[in-house]
């Protein structure tokens, strides 16, 4: 059982890291702000989500697991708020590029 949990943790965290690496590569390589934001949100949402999922069996009880999920939820909401703010700033007040 613990072996199964370990395998689950390793696979999920590694999958999360793949999204983080892809997101970082996109942030560095993509040409304009909108595409970079697109890459960044993938790391935030899926990457962190998979890492949280992988760490759940190791959270040590309900409280720790709920805290991890709360962190993921808060990051989701805040990056959802920050993304459009950055996008609006780069487009300027009149909505032009």
């Amino acid at each position: 059982m613990s072996l199964l949990a370990d395998v689950f943790t390793i696979v999920a965290v590694l999958a999360g890291l793949v999204f983080f690496i892809a997101g970082t590569a996109g942030l560095l390589r993509f040409p304009d702000t909108a595409s970079r934001l697109h890459a960044l949100t993938k790391a935030d949402h899926l990457g962190l989500g998979l890492i949280v999922l992988g760490l759940l069996p190791r959270a040590g009880g309900m409280g720790g697991a709920l805290r991890l999920l709360a962190i993921w939820g808060l990051v989701l909401v805040s990056s959802a708020a920050v993304g459009p703010m950055v996008a609006r700033l780069t487009r300027g007040p009149e909505g032009r590029e």
Binding site: V77, S78, P84
Partner: peptide, 13 residues
């Protein structure tokens, strides 16, 4: 917008 949503749901937490 999302900032408004965040400003409404985050303060209680």
């Amino acid at each position: 917008g999302p900032l408004l949503l965040l400003a409404r749901i985050l303060p209680p937490l």
